[in-house]
Design a protein around this nucleic acid. Structure first.
Length: 560
DNA sequence: GGGCGAACTTAGTATTGGAATG
DNA sequence: CATTCCAATACTAAGTTCGCCC
């Protein structure tokens, strides 16, 4: 092998090490996650660098000396203010500059600053840290760590209307850190003069490092990359569970439809909730502590105020209008015609209730999941989301792919199938700030290409006329050449137009989440193999690493 | 069964890297 | 060479599930 480099010497292409196929190996049973685990511990947030002494903090117009900690928190506040200014003036829309607040007291004044204050000199250092801390050894393999950096301190900003927004997220010290590794490994060393909170050797869990965060009191973890064996196995298992649901979903659906008629209220509520989870791909909806988090809901935690019943709406009977904030305070809005029995049940559940009362007052996620567990081993509410997402992709791909389409058109179909899933799962995004502009840019590219096409066509015409007169080989060849040019430009134009359609349809829809978390990758791989689409067109490098098991395993006949 | 801690998955957005463009 | 642009990546919040304790 080996290519010839620009210097004329033969470049020796190193044959990559044989990739480890963990999916061909036996799996652990009994809850053991690993036998050996060695790592270097976390990378701490860089220490706070005090401001130069000529920059002062003013209170009541007078300079005031702050403790280092107070000064640091002050800079957090200032940063947030700058951010608010920037967003208020929508600066990023105009150019890639950020704003600095004037240091002078009482004189807010904005200065522009280039995005590149120092040309990426940190790149090398980052690479070094990645090599040192970004990998661990788990059982006999070097594996990539997902998040080896400790979260830096700052002001907490939750999503949506979060009651704790603005609280100080404190700096994490070695004394806060629990290390998990195997006894017989080289234990990570805490920074000089410090100690870990604890070093433990628990091989029933997958995390390497943990600490408790001070805003919610939740535990944070450092874990492995999605390409790792430990994550990949779990992911594969998830899709296998969803495929088992496929085998019995008809029975389950018949069951919950039957339960709509139950004389027990709790069973009716359970059955209607399950119907929503199945039909609308709603999340389970755990209870949340009031005042601790933003007020968001899922299926079991829906309140009366989140639905409106319309006996008739837009020419349809028994329409339920949903309007609530789900995970990450993303709005779910949908008008759904439902069976009469569901409608009547909902009326019953809402009787004599206030808007802020629970719709399903006899139900919660624990009760629902206990029931599901009895119906199928390993079944929980979220399996329905995985199942419905994956089956929808498979159906849509079948429906939308035209054999006679070229590659870009087929990829548009793939993205449309993906989009159908994203809409089902309500995966939304804020339209990119530069969306309009980038659409305009694309449109002018299209216009230019159209111009180019008509030029090419004109040239072809004159070449044809020329050939008719001269009737020689050379002019015939010229005609062929021009024909090919027209074809080439037509293809390029089509590609651009497909790209524009795709982008427009994607304005407020996020495909990534479903692609990464809900769609059995074997469906996509099989589709690629069936239609001769390179898998790189569907999955980027990271995604190919995460789904290596599927790319290796699935052939074109794979059925979810 | 209710409360709670722990572990792990899922989520949208901010930042970055590097190619394209001027 | 600087700037613009977009895809990829980094980040970390916000969910679900499970097991344990009472």
């Amino acid at each position: 092998k080996g290519e010839v480099g620009t210097d004329g010497k033969k470049k020796v292409k190193k044959e990559p090490e044989e990739k480890w196929k963990w999916w061909e190996e036996e799996r652990y049973t009994d809850g053991v996650k690993w036998k050996f685990l060695e790592h270097k511990g976390p990378v701490f947030a860089p220490a706070y660098e005090p401001l130069p002494s000529n920059i002062k903090f003013y209170y009541d117009g007078k300079p005031m000396k702050l403790s280092l900690g107070a000064e640091e928190v002050g800079t957090f506040f200032a940063k947030m203010k700058v951010l608010i200014f920037r967003n208020f003036f929508n600066i990023s829309l105009e150019s890639e500059t950020s704003l600095l607040l004037s240091q002078r007291p009482g004189r807010p004044c904005l200065r522009r600053r280039s995005r590149y204050p120092t040309p990426s000199k940190n790149k090398e250092e980052n690479e070094r840290i990645l090599q040192e801390y970004g990998f661990c050894v788990m059982d006999n393999h070097k594996e990539r760590i997902a998040n080896f950096r400790i979260e830096p301190p700052g002001l907490f900003r939750g999503r949506g209307d979060h009651p704790k927004m603005g609280m100080l997220k404190r700096r994490i010290r070695p004394e806060d850190i629990i290390i998990n590794c195997s006894k017989d490994s080289q234990h990570p060393k805490p920074p000089p003069g410090t100690k870990w909170k604890e070093v433990r050797h628990d091989n029933k869990v997958t995390w390497l490092v943990s600490w408790t965060e001070n805003i919610q009191g939740a535990i944070k973890y450092i874990m492995l990359n999605p390409s790792s064996r430990i994550k990949g196995e779990k992911d594969w298992q998830k899709y296998e569970t969803a495929r088992r649901l496929k085998k019995c979903v008809d029975r389950l659906r018949a069951q919950y439809r039957d339960d709509w008629k139950s004389k027990e209220m709790r069973i009716r509520q359970r059955a209607v909730a399950l119907y929503f989870i199945d039909k609308l791909a709603l999340r389970a909806g755990n209870e949340k502590e009031e005042g601790e988090t933003a007020d968001t809901v899922g299926c079991c935690s829906l309140r009366v105020e989140h639905i409106t019943l319309h006996p008739e709406k837009d020419g349809k009977e028994y329409v339920v209008e949903f309007d609530f904030l789900g995970k990450d305070s993303i709005r779910y809005y949908n008008k759904v015609p439902v069976e009469k029995r569901v409608f009547k049940n909902l009326q019953l559940f809402m009787e004599n209730k206030q808007p802020e009362d629970d719709l399903f007052d006899r139900l919660n996620t624990t009760i629902l999941n206990k029931h599901l567990q009895e119906l199928m081993d390993g079944l929980t509410a979220k399996v329905f989301r995985t199942y419905n997402a994956s089956i929808t992709l498979q159906q849509q791909l079948k429906e939308l792919t035209s054999p006679e389409d070229n590659v870009p058109a087929k990829i548009l179909s793939y993205n449309r199938a993906n989009r159908a899933v994203a809409i089902l799962c309500n995966h939304q995004r804020a339209p990119p700030k530069t969306f309009e502009k980038s659409m305009q840019n694309l449109q002018s590219k299209i216009d230019a290409k159209k111009e180019q096409l008509s030029d090419a066509k004109r040239e072809l015409k004159s070449a044809k006329a020329d050939a008719k007169v001269r009737r020689d080989e050379k002019s015939k060849k010229a005609v062929e050449c021009k024909k090919k040019a027209v074809q080439r430009v037509e293809e390029q134009l089509m590609k651009l137009e497909v790209q524009a359609t795709d982008r427009e349809e994607n304005k407020q829809i996020a495909l990534g989440t479903s692609k990464l978390n809900y769609l059995d990758p074997r469906i996509s791989v099989a589709w690629c193999k069936k239609w001769g689409i390179p898998v790189e067109k569907i999955y980027n490098k990271t995604q190919r690493e995460k789904f290596a098991w599927a790319i290796d395993m699935a052939d074109e006949d794979f059925e979810f």
